[in-house]
Amino acid sequence: MQENDKIKVGISIGDLNGIGCEVVLKTFEDGRMLDFCTPVIFASNKTISFHKNALNLEINYHGIQEAKLALGGKINVVNVWKEIPEITFGKSTKDAGKYAILSLKAAVSALKKNEVDVLVTAPINKDNIQSEEFKFPGHTDYLASELEGESLMFMVTDSLKVGLLTDHVAIKDVASAISPRLIRNKISIIEKSLMMDFGIRKPRIALLGLNPHSGDNGVIGKEDDEVFKPVVREKTDIGHLVYGPYSADSFFGSQAYQNFDAVLAAYHDQGLIPFKTLSFGNGVNFTAGLNKVRTSPDHGTAYEIAGKGIADHGSFREAVFTALNIYKNRMEYLELTKDPLKKQRAKF
């Protein structure tokens, strides 16, 4: 593969006072990463230089004004702003939120124009990003508004994949947010993603119940019996491998998740607590269901260690590799579905 043919990875830099820049730069400090992709970081030369020097990192980069000018074999930095932001490691500031959103918007714009192929986002602070121009609880909701398709928050590793029926929804609002239509939609998104993005031909999906013990036959809430179970029956009746709802308290501890290609949790912490317990540092947040590929690491800004040079970049590196693999799988899937006989011919 020629240098300029490699997959272009757009990178939004996240909160400048957190560990975003550190995990990005540490990932590409290893020059072997340039054998797999062409990174395009949306920030500024001076911002990257500040972090490089503050963290004592050995890294060279190529400053450009537009993503389409990115060069293969280089770490490219798009100059989104000219001023020098004030950087105070470990502090949540409005300025840090402002530049995080400038980086994200520039990266998404380049993604929509096909100037980059995939997007990997460094962590933002969901509080300091809020403004008149940005009123979203996080990356997922913003990307759902900017890109085509219906989004699903999908936490993935090679051995564990957990999707969410509801993501950034307050606990008191979860039950009212879940409907048969929502469950059907999320199951469809997760099935299609498993086939298209992960190459799983006939995916098996487990649905976790909403209430303790999946409602105990209506003793502890009726949603599992009246909302969840009818959708599962409907799906299985037409040949889909969807099972549940399972009681969430023992599902992961009993290793039951290993019998499925993915798990669909009812709400944020029901899915993310076991996922992060089992996979922290190796997990990746993938926004499934959209027409573009976006991943991120499974951690936040980590203000408590920002600027100390001790952040583990493993999850960010995994997010890059996951984005590359999903992009390749998706291109292959789309090519094969254009010519269904191609897959058959490939066997001979």
Rank of each mutant, 00 (worst) to 15 (best):
4 N>V: 08
5 D>L: 10
5 D>S: 13
9 V>Y: 13
11 I>D: 04
13 I>A: 10
17 N>F: 01
30 D>W: 07
31 G>W: 02
31 G>P: 02
33 M>K: 10
34 L>A: 04
35 D>N: 14
37 C>H: 11
39 P>M: 00
43 A>T: 13
49 S>W: 04
52 K>M: 02
58 E>R: 12
59 I>Y: 10
60 N>D: 14
63 G>D: 08
66 E>D: 15
75 I>G: 04
75 I>L: 14
79 N>S: 15
86 E>L: 15
96 A>V: 08
115 E>M: 02
118 V>Q: 11
119 L>F: 11
120 V>N: 00
132 E>A: 15
138 G>K: 10
140 T>H: 05
144 A>M: 07
160 L>M: 14
164 L>F: 07
176 S>Q: 11
176 S>L: 03
184 R>C: 02
189 I>R: 02
191 E>V: 02
202 K>T: 11
205 I>N: 05
208 L>G: 13
213 H>G: 00
217 N>T: 01
219 V>T: 10
220 I>S: 06
228 F>G: 05
228 F>L: 04
231 V>Y: 09
236 T>L: 03
237 D>A: 15
243 Y>D: 03
246 Y>S: 03
251 F>S: 03
257 Y>S: 03
259 N>V: 00
272 L>R: 03
277 T>N: 10
277 T>M: 08
280 F>T: 01
283 G>E: 03
283 G>K: 02
285 N>V: 08
287 T>S: 05
290 L>M: 11
291 N>F: 03
292 K>R: 09
295 T>L: 08
298 D>N: 06
299 H>G: 09
299 H>Q: 12
300 G>R: 04
300 G>T: 04
302 A>H: 12
304 E>Q: 14
305 I>D: 04
307 G>P: 02
308 K>G: 08
314 G>V: 09
315 S>T: 02
320 V>H: 15
321 F>G: 01
327 Y>C: 08
329 N>Q: 08
332 E>Q: 14
337 T>P: 07
347 K>H: 12
